[in-house]
């Protein structure tokens, strides 16, 4: 892909997450602080909308998620999961917090599976996690 097209795709991705991602984070925090599941749900929907918009942009520019994006996404998912489990074991979660966290992780996992399945097929989705030694990992998809 030409350099300028890559820049334009990255600009759109940054813009999407600067709005939908941070706004989603805001609503999620609002829901968790106020023990208001509907507010947290709005946040989760905004995050999902961010992913959908990201995938649409990828499709328009004929590109997949970049390595850095995948790493950031998995890292953020892991960090959130860690915080959630720590709070759960400390017994500081209300029912609304518990439901919000489970909804977020459920939606993200389901979304990831759905994305991989629609993009690579069920068998191919599994293969995305099954690298043989020496396999070329140069593809940034």
């Amino acid at each position: 892909m030409p350099r300028l097209a890559t820049v334009e795709r990255d600009l759109l991705v940054f813009s999407i997450w600067a709005v939908l991602g941070l706004l989603g984070l805001g609503f999620l925090l609002e829901g968790l602080t106020r023990d208001a599941y509907p507010l947290a749900l709005i946040g989760i929907l905004l995050v999902v909308a961010g992913f959908v918009a990201h995938i649409i942009v990828n499709q328009i520019f004929g590109k997949g998620f970049r390595r850095g994006e995948t790493a950031l996404g998995i890292g953020a998912f892991g960090a959130l999961a860690l915080v959630f489990i720590a709070a759960w074991t400390a017994g500081e979660l209300s029912m609304a917090d518990y439901a919000s966290g489970l909804t977020l992780f459920g939606v993200l996992v389901a979304g990831l599976v759905a994305y991989l399945a629609t993009r690579h097929g069920l068998r191919g989705a599994f293969s995305q996690f099954h690298f043989k030694p020496g396999q070329d990992e140069g593809n940034d998809r």
Partner: peptide, 17 residues
């Protein structure tokens, strides 16, 4: 130009919110 795109989108969204 580049960063202006992100600035514009965030500014527009913040105003709407």
């Amino acid at each position: 130009g580049y960063f202006g795109v992100i600035q514009t989108v965030v500014a527009y969204s913040a105003t709407a919110v």
